[in-house]
Amino acid sequence: MQAFTTQEITRKSVGIALGFLKLSGELEDEAAADLFITKSVERMMDAGIKQELILANSAIAEYRNSTRRDQSAVLRTIVR
């Protein structure tokens, strides 16, 4: 079994997450999403998680929650 470096796991996990979000049409600002997802993956890796799919899926969930909160804040501002 081949051991991957932290950088390889990060790159693969971020790639999986960004690819999914792009294909699903959920990717708004690719550069901002890349930064958000990379930081999310790095934080989880610092906590000891090393499985690429778990990292990617968790980062996708965090990104979705973040964009929903941002959209809700905009709607609340408009309604006022």
Rank of each mutant, 00 (worst) to 15 (best):
L23N: 12
D29G: 02
I16D: 09
E52K: 03
T67V: 09
A56R: 14
S40D: 12
L75Q: 10
I78F: 14
Y63G: 02
G15Y: 00
K12A: 08
R80K: 11
E26R: 08
S72A: 13
N57W: 01
T10Q: 13
T10P: 12
Q71M: 10
N65Q: 14
Q51V: 07
L35C: 02
A73F: 02
A47W: 06
G19W: 03
E62L: 01
T67S: 04
G48F: 03
M44W: 11
I37Y: 02
E8F: 01
E28F: 03
R68P: 06
M1K: 15
S24T: 15
F36E: 06
T10I: 12
I16L: 11
E8V: 06
D29N: 11
E26F: 03
M45V: 11
D70W: 09
K50S: 02
D34Y: 06
I37D: 03
L23F: 13
I54F: 12
R64P: 02
A61K: 14
A32W: 11
F20G: 04
T6M: 05
K50V: 01
R43Q: 05
Q7H: 12
V79T: 12
K39G: 14
D70P: 04
E42A: 01
K22N: 00
E52D: 01
V14Y: 09
R80Q: 10
E30N: 08
A31I: 15
D29E: 11
S66Y: 15
N65E: 15
V14M: 08
N65I: 12
L23R: 14
D70K: 15
T10V: 14
A59N: 10
Q51S: 05
E8P: 04
A3Q: 12
L23E: 13
S40E: 13
A47R: 13
A3S: 03
T38I: 05
D70E: 13
S72N: 12
L21R: 06
E42M: 01
A61G: 09
E52Q: 00
A61W: 10
A31F: 14
T10W: 04
A73T: 07
A47G: 08
T5W: 00
G19E: 05
L21A: 03
D70S: 09
K22A: 00
G15C: 00
V79H: 14
S58L: 01
G19S: 02
V41Y: 04
L35V: 05
A59V: 06
Q2D: 14
I54V: 15
A32M: 08
R68W: 10
L23Q: 14
A73D: 08
D70Y: 08
K50Q: 01
V14T: 07
L21C: 00
Q71F: 13
R80C: 06
R11D: 07
M45C: 05
G25L: 00
E8H: 04
L35M: 04
